[in-house]
Simulated assay, not measured.
Amino acid sequence: MPLAHVSLPVTSLPASTAFYLSALNPLGYDVFMNLERAVGMTVKYDGPDFWLHQCPEMKDGEKGNGMHVAFKGSSKRVVREFYEAALKVGGKDNGPPGERTQYTKGYYAAYVLDLDGNNVECVYYQPWWLSALQVAPSVVGVVVVAGVAWWGGRAGWGL
């Protein structure tokens, strides 16, 4: 993935760290580095790709500046778990888990507003060709069984 990291400005570093640790737990995130005015998070065995930083211009209670960040989920279940976890720790619904066909078929996402009003997305995208590959063995199996039955009947096997 070409993106190295994303950093969000927050009004309360401890509160936002707790929020994101819970919301991103289904994706495997944990704290990688804890600095005085920033916290770096990552998935196990990787470098920090998500940072929170205390924004000196923001006072507690002020809302964010319309920042948006999207995390990649590994399944629809993980997207739902992210959404539920984020709501439990103070996130606000900004779009429940579901298919977003306005983007493309197979785009499944959920959106929450974090404690500072930043729009946080978790998305699972399964391209159409991957769905086709998952269904292909069943389709091929049916075609093979039907072909063997037809050929066996013509050969007098009494199938």
Rank of each mutant, 00 (worst) to 15 (best):
L21D: 06
V43Y: 05
V120E: 02
G61A: 02
Y83R: 11
D49G: 09
E121F: 12
G106L: 07
Y124S: 15
G73S: 02
G153I: 09
C122A: 04
L87C: 12
V10C: 06
G47Y: 10
T42G: 07
V142M: 07
F71D: 00
V39D: 14
V142Y: 06
G91T: 12
F32S: 08
F32C: 05
L24I: 02
L8D: 00
G98D: 01
N118S: 10
S22L: 08
G64I: 05
D93Q: 01
L87W: 00
Q102P: 13
A110F: 01
C122D: 10
P127K: 07
G152M: 01
V78W: 00
S75W: 07
F19C: 04
Q134Y: 11
V139D: 09
K72W: 13
K105E: 15
G141Q: 01
M1H: 13
L133R: 12
Q126Y: 15
V144Y: 15
A23K: 01
V140H: 03
S7M: 15
A146Q: 06
L113T: 10
M41S: 03
K63F: 12
W129P: 11
G156C: 01
W157S: 10
K63H: 05
R100E: 09
G156H: 00
E121A: 00
V89R: 14
W157Y: 02
D93S: 01
V145S: 03
V140R: 03
S7P: 15
H53E: 13
V142G: 00
R37L: 10
R37C: 12
L21T: 15
Q102T: 11
A15F: 02
A38M: 06
H53I: 15
P137V: 03
P127C: 03
G152H: 02
G147W: 06
V135W: 02
R100S: 12
A86L: 14
V39H: 05
V69D: 00
V123Y: 06
E81Y: 00
K88R: 05
N65D: 04
R100V: 12
G158D: 01
G158N: 06
Q102Y: 09
P96C: 07
G95N: 05
E99A: 13
V10L: 08
G40C: 03
G98A: 00
R77I: 13
V89E: 04
P2S: 13
D46Y: 11
G98H: 01
A132G: 11
S12P: 13
L87V: 08
G153D: 05
V31G: 03
R77Y: 09
W150T: 14
L130F: 14
P26D: 00
G141H: 11
